[in-house]
Design a protein around this nucleic acid. Structure first.
Lengths: 218, 218
DNA sequence: GACTGTGAAAGGGTTCACAGCT
DNA sequence: AGCTGTGAACCCTTTCACAGTC
């Protein structure tokens, strides 16, 4: 399939074809009128725009179950990420191979970051250690942090932090599950609490990844 | 602090106070004019609306690093989730304790789900096993699935699936990182590709959790 | 006086619909 | 004829601003 139309892509993604065309147009005019988009060229242009054509060295700090899971995660390499080092504070971990790579001690953190030109760090430590690790990463030159620890990190201006809370997705499912569990019961409960019954909107999927639950006026 | 104003909450959350009041108003009128919101009452009402006051038994299928990390994750219990069982296809895993709970074999899957009234399942298996596990979960009565495997699951109507891709958050950081890495370079590259230079919007944080990156017209 | 709840205005994103190119 | 690229219309969300309540 060398070429694809906005209609086909939109159907596959579950969105309106006009939206898809307009979105693509912000990246440039990569389509051909009367024909569609050249698949290979389009993939390249989008990859480039998203930064997938670059090589991003990352360090993972905190090699517990989660850190090890991340180190073994196959999806990183294919998206342009290269795990430059695994770092843990436990001296007993040092030298142990995880995902075919020896764990290094926290003492080496600054050296690893500067030698590899790392600008993205992943924190998978316990909550108590996260802020301190974060500060060391930032001081060493990291400007983007992905935080899996259940803490809100404070960082200086210019540093990006994204927090992944593994329970939030479960909460979203539970929220919908609650709504599924019979409207009668929900309405009865709502009435008992002297609350106007509320209806779930946006329950359907917009794209491959659903939206957050939204409570809308009836 | 028995009471809070919309202004205080909005400042803490980084949103407009009118938006916060309007959002709350969709849940009902839980505030008091001239006073604010009673913290305890508000927390209860929001918890109830989000389904946090219910007990949700969940099963985790696939007890590798990620499954173990999820089993050990402290955030679940505090949000009303109870890990009813850990399930793995490897007979060698059966009976081994993970997070203080014996791993059970996949053979028991249907029994576990019906006996515990489980409606939410977490899939942390390798990609190859995910669809099959998914089908067994659904057949056994699960109606919400949280999928950590790098596969798109197909499910019957009425079943909710949310996919967590651990590399997407990294991609978002890399996207911003790319933009940080000097506008001159980016513009030069864009010009070389015969593309109008594009500027990142929505780079700032709206709430505690940042938005997806958006490419907007200049 | 202080603060909520909410109509109305403003703003932003999505969809329509069609001009323009192949 | 077929499909992109995009101005304009539309619609939904956010913000303003103030009436209503304590």
């Amino acid at each position: 399939m060398p070429t694809v139309s906005s209609e086909e892509l939109a159907a596959a993604a579950g969105v309106n074809s006009a939206k898809l065309r307009k979105d693509f147009s912000y990246l440039g005019s990569y389509g051909t009128r009367g024909v569609g988009y050249d698949v290979e060229y389009l993939v390249y242009q989008i990859s480039r725009e998203l930064g997938l054509t670059q090589d991003w060295p990352v360090v993972i700090v905190g090699i517990g179950n989660l850190g090890a899971a991340l180190a073994n995660y196959g999806g990183f390499a294919s998206r342009g990420f290269r795990v430059a080092a695994l770092i843990d504070a436990d001296p007993a971990m040092a030298g142990k191979p995880v995902a075919g790579m020896p764990v290094q001690h926290t003492d080496e953190l600054e050296k690893i970051i500067s030698e590899n030109g790392v600008s993205i760090g992943v924190i998978a430590t316990p909550a108590g250690a996260a802020q301190q690790v974060c500060e060391r990463l930032v001081a060493a030159g990291v400007t983007s942090i992905l935080n899996f620890a259940p803490t809100v990190l404070s960082v200086p201006e210019g540093v990006d932090v994204r927090k992944v809370d593994l329970s939030i997705e479960l909460q979203i499912l539970a929220f919908h599950e609650q709504r599924k569990a019979g409207e009668e019961a929900a309405v009865a409960e709502a009435a008992a609490a002297v609350v106007p019954p509320v209806r779930a909107a946006n329950h359907g999927r917009k794209g491959p990844d659903g939206d957050l639950p939204a409570v809308m006026p009836a």
